[in-house]
Design a protein around this nucleic acid. Structure first.
Lengths: 251, 251
DNA sequence: ACTGTCAAGATTTTCGAAAATCGAATTCTG
DNA sequence: CAGAATTCGATTTTCGAAAATCTTGACAGT
């Protein structure tokens, strides 16, 4: 028996995904993560120019890893690259936000249907746990609306809850797209924090969706999820006007 | 009136997309395109290790642009990166192919519905033109099944046809995902060319879909599109077995 | 006053060598 | 002899400087 398989002996990497949780061992990777965070959290302003000299000092790395990091984040759309002109933080565009929201609605509906059909017990358990954590975080936020850390905590739990909903579908590509889209959505949500007086908890909606999912009721779950997104979209649209007035004053 | 808008004066890049057609002005970008092509067209084998020295000679560039190119393509999933271990060409995984196919079915259905609702006359015209070109390319392929160039031509037209279907939906993000997924799908399709005796033209299906779209019949168009994908999936599943037998013999 | 050309300055992109990391073979230890 | 620690060669990653490109502003011509 000859040992010459066409595929390499060890099935190297995963199919995809840098695996969200594990920290990169390389400088470029670490900088990429920091960049993502700094953009989503608005430490870097939308449309801001990202010059190598500045970033090099800020993150304390040379140009090579910095450049690689920028390309990684650019592939995700959080920064925009133009040849020989440099990089900028992706500008805020409300139309894009709507686009992202709509796509998420479609994608997550599709995912939840798949999960309800194929999801195993592990999926159910994880989902339940994720909701529990989301609920607790929601209570904490309600207690003090202005606590940045609590909102961040809630934001993380919120992501994990939606992720848990989708996870059972067993589609790596879908989960990959989920990650990309969610980052953008979070950026927009945080952008609104500055203008919205109160956080919209909507935990009851989340609970209803979860219950439908655990009941294995495809139609109900998908419908509720769609409604969830639609409501959110309407809310942000109304905020949009407020923001546009506010920014109009500035200029 | 003070000139200090928060957003930069010129609305720099587009929201997204390196714009498929235009050739990059930078070495890194060019190499990235070549890499994509070489992977999709199987000039580089699935699972093959991509060492800097080799690629550096092959593409005649230094390590910096090469590295950047690899990251760009890795973000797309055509190569897999692992820290301090290097890059490999993404392995062929039939499960992934199914995943990609299913997601495409969902995404393109969603897109075509949007296009039928919102698509303007320009969309209709482009779609018609795309189909015409696809048809001609199909005839050329039928005349000589083994002509590599004709199959490539058909493949390009096929992509453009499906793209034209989706384009009217006006969702940049969806079109972005379309691009990513299609590249992978094409790679798998080309992989099968080695094992399939005859190309499956299925132009009649394409025509039916187009007509439904031009009739602005959402349901019919979406249903036909879904069926189109389902049929394709079944076909490839049967080929899969054949391929697995063939590769089993090799090892 | 308007337009186009050209040089200077600033910035990005690329190269080539140095540093860091990994995997495997080798040596040391119990 | 088994298992842990170590050294070595190969490869990736990073740095710093050189080359290429773009932008700005001055200047000349119409």
């Amino acid at each position: 028996m000859k040992n010459t398989p066409k595929q390499p002996a060890r099935t190297w990497g995963p199919g995809l995904h840098p695996a969200r949780d594990e920290t990169p061992k390389t400088l470029a990777g670490r900088v990429a993560q920091q960049l993502r965070q700094d953009i989503i959290r608005h430490r870097l302003e939308p449309g801001e120019r990202l010059q190598f000299e500045k970033l090099s000092k800020l993150y304390e790395v040379g140009t090579s890893p910095l450049r690689e990091a920028l390309f990684q984040v650019a592939a995700q759309g959080l920064v925009v690259a133009e040849d020989h002109k440099g990089f900028i933080v992706a500008p805020i565009q409300f139309d894009e936000m709507l686009d992202v929201s709509n796509l998420r609605a479609n994608l997550e509906s599709y995912a939840i249907r798949g999960a309800i059909r194929d999801g195993r017990e592990e999926w159910e358990v994880d989902l339940l746990a994720a909701f529990h954590r989301l609920k607790r975080a929601g209570i904490a936020v309600a207690a003090d609306q202005d606590d940045e850390d609590r909102r961040t905590e809630w934001e993380d739990r919120h992501r994990e809850f939606h992720y848990a909903l989708c996870k059972g579908c067993g589609s790596p590509w879908l989960l990959h797209f989920f990650d990309e889209l969610y980052d953008h959505m979070e950026r927009y949500r945080r952008y609104f924090w500055k203008y919205a007086e109160r956080a919209v908890a909507a935990d009851s909606e989340h609970e209803a969706i979860m219950k439908a999912a655990l009941d294995r009721d495809e139609e109900r779950a998908a419908t509720l999820l769609q409604a969830h997104f639609q409501k959110q979209a309407k809310l942000t649209m109304s905020l949009r006007k407020k923001v546009e007035r506010a920014t109009a004053e500035v200029s």
